[in-house]
Each structure stands twice: as structure tokens, then as C-alpha cells.
């Protein structure tokens, strides 16, 4: 369910990630990102955090585990990072809609963890308005 305006945002935010950098071409991708949390995870997140959400790499050069991650107990933690990026991880505000961001966060927090409260689009709007700093994370753990 990728609207025309969203896919344009994808092109602006991600397909041309740098000034005049090497890339395949201009224009928007027709790849449709799912509305469903599990599928969004498989399409986007597991490219780095791996299919089991256990992360990978070694200390000093790793993608953190999302599974069994106590930092995700705070439902704003993942929301802020998805909206604003952190370190090597890009922001996904341009690639995913707010309903998609909420859906995938709820999947990660509910399926790979046991947090039952729900992230809503209203939560994401609240964070955007409040504009909190990106939290430091213990990304090696």
C-alpha cells in the first residue's frame, strides 16, 4: 500500500542518499512496502538486524539485537530512532509511513519482546512535536 506521494518521499529520502553519488538512476521505486508489521520487518529491518532480530557482528562493529531488548520497553525509544536515525542507522521517516512505523514497532516489541502496550500514530506525532534528542544506546549489547 504505497501511495504515490509516499513513494516520491522514498525517492527523495533514500534513492538519492547523497549529493551526486553513484547510484542506479533517478526516480521512485515501485517496490511496495507492506502495511503489516511482520512483513515490514522482513522487507526492511532484517537486512541489518537479521531474521531472528538477534542482531549480528562483534562488539565495536555490530547491529544491536532487537529481540529481548530492555531498551524497547520504553515505547518512545524505538520510535525516536526510527523517526530520526541514530549512528549508522538511517531514519525511516521518508521510506515508511507513520502507520507502517507504528506497525513494525508493535511487531518488534510484541513478537521479539513481550511488551504489550501499543505504539500509535498519535505517539509518533507527539514525538515529532516534542522533538526529543536521540537517546544514547548501549548498541553493543
Amino acid at each position: 500500500m504505497l501511495s504515490g506521494t509516499l513513494s516520491l518521499a522514498v525517492a527523495l529520502a533514500q534513492a538519492s542518499p547523497g549529493f551526486a553519488q553513484d547510484r542506479p538512476s533517478n526516480g521512485e521505486s515501485a517496490v511496495e512496502v507492506s502495511a503489516e508489521g511482520r512483513e515490514i520487518y522482513e522487507q526492511i529491518c532484517q537486512s541489518c538486524h537479521m531474521a531472528d532480530a538477534k542482531g549480528c557482528g562483534v562488539p565495536g562493529a555490530m547491529f544491536p539485537a532487537l529481540a529481548d531488548n530492555p531498551r524497547l520497553a520504553d515505547k518512545d525509544y524505538g520510535s525516536i530512532i526510527l523517526l530520526k536515525g541514530r549512528g549508522g542507522m538511517p531514519w525511516f521517516a521518508g521510506m515508511l509511513t507513520r502507520p507502517q512505523i507504528a506497525a513494525v514497532l508493535n511487531y518488534v516489541r510484541g513478537h521479539f519482546n513481550k511488551y504489550q502496550d501499543t505504539v500509535t500514530v498519535a505517539d509518533l506525532d507527539r514525538i515529532t512535536t516534542a522533538n526529543p534528542p536521540v537517546p544514547d544506546c548501549n548498541c553493543g549489547h
Binding site: 533514500q14 538519492s16 542518499p17 521505486s29 517496490v31 522487507q43 526492511i44 532484517q46 537486512s47 521510506m95
Partner: peptide, 13 residues
């Protein structure tokens, strides 16, 4: 294949 953006995430995963 040579995508950036969403296509790259889809294939990398």
C-alpha cells in the same frame, strides 16, 4: 541488481 533505498533493504534481507 544495483538498488539503493527500499529495493536494497528488500534484497539484503
Amino acid at each position: 541488481a544495483y538498488p539503493f533505498g527500499v529495493g536494497a533493504y528488500v534484497l539484503a534481507g
